[in-house]
Structures are given as structure tokens and as C-alpha cells.
Design a protein around this nucleic acid. Sequence first.
DNA 1: TAGGCCATCTGGTCCT
DNA 2: AGGACCAGATGGCCTA
Length: 271
Amino acid sequence: MDSDTSRVSSRPSSPEVDDIFLATLKKSVHSYSSAVTSTQCDHLSELHGLRTLTAEDEESLALRLAKKDHKLLSENELQTIRLKINSRERKRMHDLNVAMDGLREVMPYAHGPSVRKLSKIATLLLARNYILMLSNSLEEMKRLVSEIYGSGAHHGGFHPAACGTMTHAGPVPGHPVVSHASHPAVHHPLLPPAVSTASLSAPGISAVTSVRAHHGLLKAPGAAAGPLGSSFHHWGVGTGMPCPCSMCQVPPPHVTSMSAVPMPRLTSDSK
DNA sequence: TAGGCCATCTGGTCCT
DNA sequence: AGGACCAGATGGCCTA
């Protein structure tokens, strides 16, 4: 089922330098196939400063890589520059992937060798919903605290009677979520068995396409479908029923409306 | 085999 | 000028 595990472990985001270099050479040959003859393609090793180019080849390369400078660089110089730029870009993407892995680690999602790694898009969407859920929980906590200290301890028993016989799903191992008083057992609305497909879907992105079903994410039979953040439910183990307590209700509009707020670019695009 | 996901290359643009 | 960032293109790997 999770045969993709091997893929995850066998596909490091930062391949060995030799592989990178070979890939670079291959790509270079491919990219410049219009300028490099097939015979030259058969001699990859010559590309690394050893291959001799025809005058046409060199001119073509120079024009394509250094047209901004309006000067013709030697093949070695161009190759060096190109490799340097490529290396930087690889490092940048590698750092990005490291950050993405770090995000995955703190997500309420089962980790382990038998669990398929979240895709990038799924990670981002899940993170977003997770933040929304936590924000909602925090707001609710504040409300409960003011309620307790204001008009007596409605939640004094740390759990509303409304929750009745509902049993909450247990916490996810390793998950850093802080449990709250009214719900000693941390809820994970984004996880089975009570995962709402809606919780991961974003406007314009269907949950079905954005998250593969075998992730074990967000496929709760009969779970209420709806727009992103429409509901965060606790689920009674064995009952399959959402917890009716106030913690489980629809997030306030000001929270859900975040989905409509475009994220501004850090760098100025206006010009 | 089609589609999803990913890494990489590449050229352009913006920023310092 | 050099580096960071971005998006398009490409090809590989994997799954259904």
C-alpha cells in the first residue's frame, strides 16, 4: 500500500555531487542539442572543459549564456558560471526542502517508514489548516477562560457535559500540540479516523487531487464536506460522531476568512 | 500507460 | 555585479 516509502528514502533532495555533475552535463547536452552535434553528445566527459567546440558551437553558447553581457565568454568560463548558478539554485531548493521536512515533522501526521511522506502541496495545505485549527482552539480557550473566571466554572469539570459519552481520539505520538484543559486528550481533526476532507482543501484545489487518499489523510466516511476550515470536529472513537462540545464548532468567520486573504509578496512587485 | 510528484536546469527579474 | 527568487521546461520515478 505504501510502496512509495522506498521512493521517499531513495530520493534524497540533495543528490551526490557526482550525480549532480553528470546530470548537469547531460542536461547541458540536452539543452544545447541544437548547437552540439550528436557525436559530441556521445562524449560527455569532454564537456567539462575538455570538449572542443566548433566555432559555431562556441558562438551559440556564448550568445545564449552571455547575451546579457554583450560579450563572448570562453566555453570554460560559461560552463563555470553556469555550474555555479546551478549549484546555488540546487542549494536553495535543498534548503527549501529541509524547511519543508521540518514543517512535516511538526505536522499532526503519522510519521514513520511505512507512511508515505506528505507531498509539498499537501504539507502546505495541512499546515495552513493546522494553524487555523490552533488559532481557533486558542480563541476558544480564551473564551472559556473568561467564561470560567467570569460567570462561574461552566467548564469547571474540564469537560462539558455535552461531550457526554464521547471519547476523544488520543494524541499523536511526537506531536507537540499543547493539550488544553477542557480536552485533556488532544484532538487531531486532521487525522483519521475523523479526518475531514474539507480541512485540507483549499479554494480552487480539491482535496481529492491535492492529497492522495493513501496518505491516510482526510478520508472520513461520511465526514462533512465543505469549504476550507468550515468545521473542526472532534470525533468519538467507535461512534464516528463529531463531538458536540463548543471546542468542536465552526471557527469564527474572522479565522476562516483568512483563506480569502492573499499573501503579499515579500519583495515589491509593484512597478 | 497516464498522471502526480519531484529535482534540476535555465533565463528573467529584483534586490543589495 | 552578484546573489536571491521565481517560473517554465524537461525528464525521471512511482503509483493506480
